[in-house]
């Protein structure tokens, strides 16, 4: 078990002020047997009203509204996480994680690739890990070549991308191999941005696989949200009025606490 200190902050600046701004944020890590979370600080500002809700996938969400003009918006969460990463998260399986979703549709190139690397034997865990190894070998990490709209099949055709693309491809391959799989967004040890990985359903619960690093998810990962793919667990969504240019800055810091 590790004790991690985490800080997650996103700041938006608007060149010209905006108004009538609605937001929805997934920024609070859930409490479960793998991670015990203590929130030290949380702020969302400005905000006229903030409410807490759960979404249909079981993730925590803040929703709120800002009526008047403002030229920045920021949310920050920090706290301590006690993580036991290799444990299973026991849950009833929702069958939606067995079927293709928007970002993980089975296009021809994906099916063709799957047939080449299809694991011949082993249980779901072993086959999932083998699929992860295959992607790690055949896919190149490169920023800026894909974006938030890129699907698993498109990224695979490019042969390169970022953690989101690694995760989408692994999810599609696992589902093709009859292993239920879901997308996870969260934080990883170090400084930088949010990270994305995969959970696969084996036996009676979920285990984490990080295809970007070819690792089983361990005590250095803090999960924030999960869903069928990227779209179900977007960390922040906003809708406002005004003509402006928006600048976004994300800061994540996770380190071992004393």
């Amino acid at each position: 078990m590790k004790k991690l200190h985490f800080l997650y902050r996103t700041t938006f600046r608007f060149d010209d002020p905006v108004y009538n701004h609605s937001f929805a944020l997934r920024c609070i890590p859930p409490n479960n047997n793998v991670q015990k979370i203590w929130i030290e600080k949380r702020h969302i500002r400005p905000a006229d009203s903030i409410d807490e809700m759960m979404d249909g996938f079981g993730n925590h969400r803040y929703i709120g509204h800002i009526g008047g003009y403002h030229d920045s918006f920021e949310y920050e969460v920090s706290g301590i996480a006690w993580v036991n990463g290799m444990q299973v998260v026991k849950e009833k399986l929702n069958p939606i994680y067995k079927y293709p979703s928007k970002y993980t549709r089975y296009e021809e190139n994906l099916i063709k690739y799957y047939k080449q690397i299809k694991p011949q034997q082993g249980d779901s865990m072993q086959r999932g890990i083998e699929l992860m190894h295959a992607i790690y070998r055949n896919f190149v990490y490169e920023g800026g070549v894909t974006d938030v709209e890129t699907t698993a099949a498109q990224a695979l055709a490019l042969g390169k991308g970022v953690c989101q693309d690694y995760a989408h491809i692994l999810i599609a391959l696992c589902r093709l191999n009859n292993i239920p799989a879901r997308y996870v967004v969260g934080l990883m040890i170090g400084e930088g941005f949010t990270h994305a990985w995969v959970e696969i359903f084996v036996g009676d619960g979920w285990y984490g696989l990080d295809p970007t690093n070819d690792l089983l998810v361990n005590d250095y990962y803090i999960k924030i949200a999960h869903g069928r793919d990227y779209e179900d667990c977007i960390v922040d969504k906003g809708l406002f009025y005004g003509q402006t240019v928006q600048h976004q800055e994300v800061y994540v810091n996770v380190c071992e606490a004393e």
């Binding site: 609605s22 937001f23 929805a24 809700m53 979404d55 969400r61 929703i63 809708l239």
Partner: peptide, 22 residues
């Protein structure tokens, strides 16, 4: 609800689904 479904929607009500869920 553009915050829950199609984010391009300009004919929806942001965060309506949360009101409904509650």
């Amino acid at each position: 609800d553009p915050m829950t479904f199609n984010k391009e929607s300009v004919i929806g009500i942001p965060n309506l689904m949360d009101v409904y869920r509650a």
